[in-house]
């Protein structure tokens, strides 16, 4: 259908989306880059001056910065580990012949549709609250001292909440992949005398490898930007114990009104995200025929 009339029209139809996205991508990014080299504080806008690399140096010398990078990594890796391992297990469980598979799927997928602030509030108050949470009730029932999760294990608590939100996503994608596994292949392996664990190791896992990659990469992109969960539960604390890079930049911009510093942090975040993005683009690009 490559005729001349259609080509020109196609260009016209593509243009708005491309132009809009181009503006959306390039304008704010350039502004961020520009601001990152300014001494610019919203509380004192008259004192704006050229800062050179100062903002970057400042960010770099701030101990909170490295803690935030560390927290970001722990948060991402922790959630990835939990969601992938449990995701595989749950996907395989749901894939078994069970009664009410449809309802089980719906129950498992539900947390994904809960908006981040609600998820955080539910866990903070209903489940992990040191006096009124379900876990506290369980602790008292067992005769143990209830744990004050957000004070004692702030980062772990946030990992738990975020993992709960993303587990459905991992499970659903892995389940989709599992269901496309050729049953004849499994039966052939069974005929060949392969026990269940080697069938899992040599057939199921390699088959799911692609889906697992996709889960890891897509989740990473979202997990690098975790914000509302922290805002609602720990507000980054105690101290900076549960502050990730996103939250640190938010604090600089919105609470300290330090536009230059926040912009420099933003550029660092872009670099981090790009490293991840390169991998994702490759994995996804392969599927484009």
């Amino acid at each position: 259908m490559a005729t001349r009339q259609t080509q020109g029209l196609a260009r016209l139809m593509r243009a708005p989306a491309i132009i809009l996205l181009f503006i959306w991508m390039i304008v704010p990014l350039c502004m961020t880059l520009y601001y990152s080299f300014l001494n610019y504080n919203l509380l004192n806008p008259g004192m704006t001056s050229w800062a050179g690399w100062f903002n970057y140096q400042y960010f770099y010398s701030d101990p909170a910065f490295f803690e935030a990078i560390g927290n970001t990594l722990i948060l991402v890796l922790g959630v990835l580990f939990i969601t992938v391992v449990l995701g595989i297990a749950i996907a395989m469980l749901i894939d078994k012949p069970i009664f009410g598979q449809g309802i089980v799927r719906i129950l498992v997928i539900s947390p994904f549709f809960v908006m981040p602030p609600v998820a955080a509030l539910i866990w903070k108050n209903m489940i992990m609250h040191p006096s009124y949470g379900v876990l506290a009730d369980v602790a008292r029932f067992l005769g143990v001292q209830p744990v004050d999760w957000f004070a004692q294990y702030p980062l772990f608590s946030i990992i738990l909440i975020v993992a709960w939100q993303w587990l459905p996503f991992a499970t659903l994608i892995l389940l989709t992949s599992l269901q496309s596994l050729d049953t004849e292949q499994m039966e052939a392996a069974e005929m060949d005398g392969a026990p269940a664990y080697s069938r899992f190791l040599y057939l199921v896992l390699p088959h799911m490898a692609r889906a697992i990659t996709v889960v890891i990469l897509i989740q990473t992109i979202f997990l690098l930007g975790i914000y509302a969960e922290i805002l609602v539960t720990t507000n980054g604390g105690p101290g900076t114990a549960s502050t990730n890079l996103t939250f640190l930049i938010y604090r600089a911009a919105r609470l300290n009104f330090d536009i230059g510093g926040a912009a420099a942090g933003g550029i660092i975040a872009v670099i981090l995200a790009n490293i991840v993005a390169v991998f994702l683009m490759r994995a996804v690009g392969r599927n484009l025929d």
Binding site: M25, M31, A253, G266, N274
Partner: peptide
């Protein structure tokens, strides 16, 4: 294909990176 990949790449930009300019705008 390149255009599609590029569109996808805009999705990778962390929101926080453009928080400052968007907020100011």
């Amino acid at each position: 294909k390149d255009i599609l990949m590029w569109m996808l790449s805009t999705k990778m930009m962390p929101a926080v990176a453009v928080l400052v300019p968007i907020y100011l705008i």
